[in-house]
Write a protein that binds this DNA or RNA. Sequence first.
DNA 1: TTGTTTATCAACCATCTGGTTGATAACAAC
DNA 2: GTTGTTATCAACCAGATGGTTGATAAACAA
Lengths: 119, 119
Amino acid sequence: MSNDDDLLDAAFLALSDPVRRQLISRLSRGPATVNELAEPFAISKQAVSKHIQVLEQAQLVTRSRDAQRRPVHLNPARLEALTAWIDQYRLVREAQFRSLDAVLRTNTAPCGSSQKDRQ
Amino acid sequence: MSNDDDLLDAAFLALSDPVRRQLISRLSRGPATVNELAEPFAISKQAVSKHIQVLEQAQLVTRSRDAQRRPVHLNPARLEALTAWIDQYRLVREAQFRSLDAVLRTNTAPCGSSQKDRQ
DNA sequence: TTGTTTATCAACCATCTGGTTGATAACAAC
DNA sequence: GTTGTTATCAACCAGATGGTTGATAAACAA
């Protein structure tokens, strides 16, 4: 987990599983232990523990220590890094769509669906 | 690829690979064919074609037809769905952090690092 | 027709993923 | 000490993923 690319790999991979996304959802309402997190699921707590390790490696969550408990906390900063990556490309493309739209609207009149591929 | 959850699965999985993220990056500058997309990479174009199929299944890209070419287009709408999902939880948690911060700032004076786990 | 370009399909293979069960470690309470 | 709770580790397994090579199809150009 050295460079930035590996962190993005790990984070997106972590979010590609519905169980892990539900864990994120639960943690957005506050920290929780593995047992608490595992309770709503039909799978073993070992499996949940593995899921949490995946999230932890991606730095989407952190752990603390409270006797034998190891509460899991959400890390919003890492979530923000993901939206930042996505928006970097989404916004560029949407801006191009808007300007293309403006060109089509002013030059050619009818609102036909004739979009050329190579710009 | 029926429900919303499957689409999120597919989309986050699609972005968990550095090659596919670079494809997204390239496509944010405009449509391109498989051969054009494969050129910068050391892997075969069959491999790139597979990557594009993964992106297409996630509806992050679309294809069109231009003679024997099949140009690939970015789909910003799907990218936006991802940021929407992330922000849904990121913003909740950050808001909680801010209010906790405010409570700590007004009630207890010294800026020590004593955060309790269970809220 | 023949050839070229573009792109996918079909096998195949090594590795990773997500789940299981059983054993183990660390701590709390008695 | 013993018992119970919390959590991880280790080994295993079925299926998915990411890459390869070779064959094939589709749309042109000559």
